[in-house]
Design a protein around this nucleic acid. Structure first.
Length: 422
RNA sequence: GGGGGAAUGUCCCGAGUGGCAAAGGGGGCGGACUGUAAAUCCGCUGGCGUACGCCUUCGCAGGUUCGAGUCCUGCUUCCCCCA
């Protein structure tokens, strides 16, 4: 199912997706290539509202839509207002917790915003559009649903799907609710085909079964050809699923993860991942990436900075990226303070009275609790103005302010926060 | 409907004789070493407290006991076997 190496795509779309590492599996890459040459395609990816923001794990998908648009096609962002209520079981060992309507609505709002920097929305032929599957899924009556869609799916076939076999073999429950998810996703594809002429669906590798079923449904009901392409699951070279850190995921929304931290995330990429990430997550030309990727030893840090700059610029804008880069340069390369580091304001009166270091570090977000901050200090990981402080109980007051009236607090080498009395 | 088993440190897996803040992994965080990398070694990994300490945790609710993750009763969810 992987693209044969002998295949030479003629369309920009397929060529670029392949070159940049977006293709893991495809139903009919040659057919898609031919279709893309004929004119603008409409393609979609669905995003369920399981969290208040998308994170780096979804970035591959977003970038796929971006490439699609840049090669002259129309992206459709499908918000899963309806499917979220069922919950996709594909990559899960157990059923997801049920989310309430209120939570789903809030999550959708947060997710919606993430797309603006990556796609151009509008009414033109290749402008991106955003739709919500609650619009059609919620109207379906049960019997209607069974008769219109259920009739096209056989249990025999569904039982052969990998995640279904997994659940059954490992004796994990698979509820009927979850079992229906793929029908809903198939219905989505059909609906988008009808409404918007959508003929292509992208998704993560775990979406393969769902996508193929949608293509079948379109073929049966509309006698039309549709295509599916999945992206590889992006892991780091160490084999860890990408984007997992202290605070959980690397969120895209700025209020959940600051541009500075976002820049740092990319800057801390492992050597072995730099080339792959540059191809996937930036628009840099491939020959430029090849040059950066070839850098050896410490020089590859330059490539990581480029990656951080490009990725941060794309999401938060050039200005935010420059500020983040500048703050990092000052802090790590010149060993001095930059006022552009994340800053926490603390009431001057509180500092006059004195605050325990552990409490201050916790409030500044460097530790999850005071106990944790205290342990961090004991282990030598907490520094005040670059001096390791072992006693978490030590009081911090205005006397700790430097010449600029700030206190620099650091947990480890990389997490730095400035305290500003106000 | 009947019988048998399971649920553990709110990231995951997982041991647990009535004295347990609870073995061991993974993951994460910190330290050393480096290049803000990898690998390796070391430390930490429930909350609050300056401290001898206090509080909250083993599916839920009761009970026995000086004392319960561990025993008893009921309930919930899941798995297996029989019907």
């Amino acid at each position: 199912m992987n693209a044969p190496s002998s295949f030479k795509p003629r369309s920009d779309l397929v060529r670029i997706l392949m070159e940049r590492g977006h293709v893991y599996q495809a139903t009919d890459l040659e057919g898609l290539d031919a279709a893309a040459l004929k004119g603008p395609l409409s393609a979609y990816i669905g995003f369920d509202a399981t969290a208040p923001s998308l994170h780096v794990g979804s970035l591959v998908q977003i970038m796929t839509l971006r490439r699609l648009q840049m090669t002259g096609h129309r992206p459709i962002v499908l918000m899963g207002g309806g499917t979220t209520k069922v919950g996709d079981p594909s990559d899960k060992a157990t059923q997801r917790p049920m989310l309430t309507d209120e939570v789903i609505a809030e999550n959708l709002e947060g997710i919606r915003r993430a797309f603006a920097p990556f796609l151009r929305f509008g009414a033109g032929p290749t402008d991106a559009i955003m739709v919500n599957n609650a619009d059609w899924l919620e109207k379906l009556g049960y019997i209607e649903f069974l008769r219109d869609y259920g009739v096209h799916f056989t249990i025999n076939r569904m039982l052969t799907l990998e995640f279904v076999r997994n659940r059954i073999e490992n004796e994990l429950p698979l509820t009927f609710l979850e079992f229906n998810y793929m029908l809903m996703q198939s219905a989505d594809f059909l609906e988008l085909h009808r409404r918007h002429g959508c003929t292509l669906q992208f998704g993560g590798s775990e979406q393969w079964g769902n996508i193929v079923n949608g293509i079948d449904l379109i073929r049966r009901i509309e006698s039309a050809e549709a295509y599916g392409v999945t992206a590889p699951l992006v892991t780091t070279a160490s084999g860890v699923k990408m984007g997992k850190t202290v605070d959980g995921a690397v969120w895209l929304n700025a209020e959940m993860r600051s541009p500075y931290d976002y820049w740092q995330f990319w800057r801390n990429t492992e050597d072995a991942d730099v080339g792959r990430f540059l191809r996937l997550f930036t628009d840099l030309p491939l020959d430029e990436i090849a040059r950066l990727e070839a850098l050896q030893g410490a020089e590859i840090n330059e490539a990581k900075k480029v990656l951080a700059n490009e990725a941060t610029t794309m999401l938060h804008g050039a200005e935010a990226a420059e500020v983040a880069a500048g703050a990092a340069r000052a802090a790590f390369e010149e060993g001095r303070l930059s006022n552009d580091l994340p800053t926490i304001e603390v009431a001057r009166a509180d500092l006059e009275a004195g605050i325990a270091l552990a409490a201050l570090a916790t409030d500044a977000g460097l530790a999850g609790s005071r106990s944790e901050a205290r342990r961090l200090a004991q282990g030598g990981g907490l520094r005040v103005n670059d001096v390791a402080e072992n006693d978490g109980q030590r009081t911090i007051n205005l006397a700790d302010c430097n010449a600029e009236g700030l206190i620099k607090l650091a947990a480890g080498r990389k997490k730095i926060v400035l305290i500003r009395p106000v």
